[in-house]
Amino acid sequence: MDPLLVVDDLHVEFRTDDGVVRAVNGLSYMVDRRETVAILGESGSGKSVSAQAIMGLIASPPGFITKGSVRFEGRELLTMAEDERRKVRGADIAMVFQDALSALNPVFSVGWQISEMFRKHRGASKKEAKKSAVELMELVEIPDATNRYRSFPHEFSGGMRQRVMIAMALALDPDVLIADEPTTALDVTVQAQVMQLLENVQAEFGMGLVLITHDLGVVAEQADRVVVMYAGRAMEKGTIDEIFDQPHHPYTEGLMNSIPRLDDLNERLNPIRGNPPDLLRIPSGCAFRPRCPYQQPDCAEVEPTLEFVGDSGRSTACHHWRDAFGE
C-alpha cells in the first residue's frame, strides 16, 4: 500500500526582480496515518513554503515548483488538474494556519463558516450543516457551542479562534492535516491546550499530522519524527528521541544548545553564530557552512546529501558528522 503522503525532492523557487529565491531545495519526507512529522526550522527555512506547495497555494508567478513530486495515496498532486486538486484540498489534505484571526473571514459568523464546509462539499441542508458544525465545535472543546455558533471571529480569544480553524479543517474528515505554526500566535498556556487538542483529534480521526514549527518544545511533546530544515533543505531526519538525545548535524546541535535551561539561570544563552542565509545567495556547498563550528575546506565545495546514520532510518546532511559526533 502506498504511504499516505510522500514529498520527494521538492524544489520551489520564487522569481523576483532581485533574482531567484530558492525557498525549498530538495525536501523529502513522508507521513503515514496516525503519525506526526514535525518540520522544524527558523523563519526563512522554507518550511511554510513547502506546505503551501503541497496544498497548491503557491501563486505562480512568482512561485514555481521546479522539481520533485508530492504524492497522496500514490496520486501525484503536482501535475493534477486544478479541478481535481481542489477536491483533494480540505477533503484529503487540510491545513491550519498560524494566525487564526486573519485566517477566518471577518464578516461571517464562525458557525456559518464551519457549516459552509458541510453545505458546499457534502451538500448538507442548512439544518444538518448547523447540527454538524455545532458537534464539531463541541469536539474541539469550544464551550457553549450552540450559542457561540453565531459569534464572529473577532469575538473569540486567540485559542478559541485556533479551535475554530481546527474545526473547519476537520470538517471534511481529512487524511492529512498540515498545521503551519498552529500555536505561534498564542500564549504559552493556550499553546499547550491547542497542542493537546491536536493530539486528541489525531487520535480520534487517525490522520497523519504534519506539524510545521520553529518551537522545539512543541516538537518534543508531539512529534514521532522530525525533519530539521535549513535554507530549504533537510539537514537531519530522525525520530524525536534520536534527534533530541544526540543530534548528528551541527545545526541541530546548535538549536539544542540555544534552548534556555531552567535549571541553570546564570548560564548565558548560547545562540548559533551568524544569520540565516539570504535565499538569493545561498552559500556554495553546505548552506550551514558559514555558521558551522566544525567546518572544513571541502564543505564549501560539495553540497552534502542526506546519508544514513546507523540502520534506524535516521539521516544527516553533513560531511563530517563522524568526526563531530562519532558513530
Binding site: 487540510a94 494556519f97 473571514n105 471577518p106 464546509m117 471534511l172
Partner: peptide
C-alpha cells in the same frame, strides 16, 4: 490569510 485558508479547505 482567510483567502488562502478558504482555498486550502477546497
Amino acid at each position: 490569510d482567510y483567502i488562502d485558508s478558504a482555498r486550502a479547505l477546497g
